[in-house]
Design a protein around this nucleic acid. Structure first.
Lengths: 176, 176
DNA sequence: CGCGTCAGTTCACTAGCGAGACTCACTCTA
DNA sequence: TAGAGTGAGTCTCGCTAGTGAACTGACGCG
């Protein structure tokens, strides 16, 4: 029984989760943002099993989030640095960190804070609408089919119900 | 050999990942945002195993992201609706979806798009600095210890290296 | 009374996760 | 030229978590 793969689901969320949705991968990426590059750096910082780390690094390289580069011959040693897509993942990590700060700190405050060099402020991540800059809230969003959605599936009943112009009534009745 | 728990790590990211970092949980939450409330709705929409779904719902309820409420007596039937913290998780999902749109679509375009009711635009999520509103980039961020960081650990060598005012040189040498 | 609905639980099976030991290739020291 | 050290992995193996499917139990309906 293999884990069900979401790779080919018509949903970017599912695909991302398929790739990054295990317990270690986000932390490996965090370490990369903290400056780790070498196998043993990652391993010691996280206390992760070496085989697990090797597998994660391999996959992240295969998927293009990390680049494996030779930093010395004799013996051949490789290090792992964030690629463009890897660096772009910072937003997701920052959003997740922010969520944890808000809901998981049990009154002790954030363990780690962000300082934004550009404006100098101690800050945190916020997820906004790219067009108007307002924070995104569930109530303000509709989901629409995009160009990458398979034509075959458009006719499906569930799809039509979900994306048929408006949200299902139950969703709108959500209190709050 | 149990999965190592990140619950008590001094890192909101690790704690969030511990809670939500498996393959199904984010998709269950996505379904909740799409309007699913009932057990069988979730089950059919995702094709998830019923026992796995039951376990995920139970945990999400225990952690406060979902509320389990009785929607009919005789027979007793429960449904699951997003709580405040659950709704707040939308930002993370939207950021992850956006990342997938950018890096995982293989030239076919986004399968699902967002429409922001407030401004009317077809849009996507963007992660910005809460203070100045500029998009967050890895190069512009410093990490600092916050009030929730355990005092005991501050003396640790690794911690001092990471948070001792500036980033380690290797991080700054990152190309890009 | 038998059928359908809904929300789960139980069960048998197994892929693969995770921890720690081990390997391999090399350099450095004396 | 032994011996220690370093760094990047592989190997072994117990265990767990996910899979799919059957089952349960409370109830309404005709």
């Amino acid at each position: 029984m293999k884990r069900t793969s979401f790779r080919s689901w018509p949903c970017s969320l599912a695909r991302s989760v398929d790739l990054l949705g295990d317990w270690w991968t986000p932390l490996v990426l965090r370490e990369a943002f903290f400056g780790s590059r070498r196998f043993d750096e990652f391993q010691q910082a996280l206390g992760i099993g070496r085989n697990v780390l090797a597998a994660r690094l391999r996959r992240l390289v295969a998927e293009g989030l990390l680049e494996r580069r030779l930093y010395q011959e004799r013996p051949r040693r490789y290090e792992y640095v964030l690629s463009e897509s890897g660096r772009d993942f910072l937003g997701v990590l920052a959003a997740l960190m922010r969520w944890g700060d808000r809901w998981l700190d049990r009154g002790r405050g954030a363990p780690v804070q962000l300082r934004h060099r550009r404006c100098g402020a101690r800050t945190h991540a916020e997820v906004v609408c790219a067009e108007c800059g307002e924070p995104l809230a569930a109530e303000d969003l509709d989901f629409e089919l995009g160009p990458g959605f398979p034509k075959k599936l458009v006719a499906k009943e569930r799809v039509r119900r979900l994306f048929g112009g408006r949200r299902p009534p139950r969703a709108e009745a959500t209190p709050g």
